[in-house]
């Protein structure tokens, strides 16, 4: 059910006054099905643009992206997107937000309601199902957004700094939850962050992108999250700190 992502010769530049501004520079990358890949980099390096290209919101200047062997030509249900700012719809309660994907695919009312409730309980939001998104805290909104994406049953989940706006405690709790979700669902996940610790903690593989124009300057398998270690044990490992130091050095050499 999970699919891989293949990126070949990807380049992108923005049109601006005074010519083209290069944003991404020759990216070649293969993400295996079921990997949780984290991509770290300084702000403005093009990592969000990269993610939006895989999502199909932006077309690259050149190069190709394929997901599960199919070339990306636009947004599609095989790629779920968790946005930095939650995009829940205020006119729907939380349950209907989560049930939207099945609804758009024409799933019947009772069935999509059951699907929504299942994913809401998976992210610990069963009690909030009847509330409106603006009645939830930032952390709960991100949980609801993740539930909505999972309820759409995508092969690949793309996450664009989803925890960037949350306080440290909430952030850590959501990281732990994501790890559990990934282990349970086996989805392919690309997770963008500007936090080194987050990248190292979550990733089964960590990528680092250079400042604009973005290139992949570090690509390292990280064993922690794939092992069945508890979150606090991972953070306490000596190798965790070592890997974090290497990633930090790659971001700011």
């Amino acid at each position: 059910m999970s699919k891989g992502i293949d990126v070949a010769g990807l380049e992108h530049s923005f049109r601006a006054r005074g010519g083209a501004v290069p944003a991404l520079d020759r990216i070649d990358l293969a993400i295996e099905p079921g990997e949780l890949v984290t991509l770290a980099g300084p702000s403005g390096c093009g990592k969000t643009t990269f993610l939006r290209m895989i999502a199909g919101f932006v077309a690259p200047s050149s190069g190709t992206i394929t997901v599960g062997g199919t070339t990306v030509r636009g947004p599609g249900v095989d790629r779920g997107v968790v946005f930095q700012q939650p995009t829940l719809y205020p006119w729907l309660d939380v349950r209907r937000n989560v049930a939207l994907g099945p609804k758009l695919r024409g799933v019947g009312k009772a069935e999509r309601r059951a699907t929504a409730d299942r994913y809401l309980s998976l992210v610990g939001l069963s009690d909030a199902a009847d509330r409106r998104p603006y009645e939830l805290s930032g952390g709960m909104q991100q949980r609801a957004q993740i539930a909505r994406v999972l309820a759409g049953d995508p092969e690949v989940v793309l996450m664009d700094e989803p925890y960037g706006a949350l306080d440290a405690l909430t952030r850590e709790r959501l990281q732990n939850e994501l790890l559990t979700l990934w282990r349970e669902t086996g989805k392919t996940i690309l997770f963008i962050t500007h936090s080194v610790d987050e990248a190292v903690f979550l990733g089964s593989r960590v990528l680092v992108m250079s400042p604009r124009p973005g290139r992949i300057v570090l690509d390292e398998k990280v064993p922690f999250s794939s092992r069945s270690l508890a979150p606090d044990e991972i953070r306490a490992l000596p190798e965790f700190a070592e890997t974090a130091a290497r990633v930090r050095a790659a971001i700011a050499p």
């Binding site: 758009l104 994406v149 759409g152 995508p154």
Partner: peptide
């Protein structure tokens, strides 16, 4: 991104109108 989110969940052009644009 409210439009993009719906597209990624499989919304057609008509569904985008009725499910997102009109209520918004």
């Amino acid at each position: 991104d409210q439009l993009n989110a719906a597209r990624s969940l499989g919304a057609s052009g008509l569904q985008l109108q009725t499910q997102v644009i009109i209520p918004a």
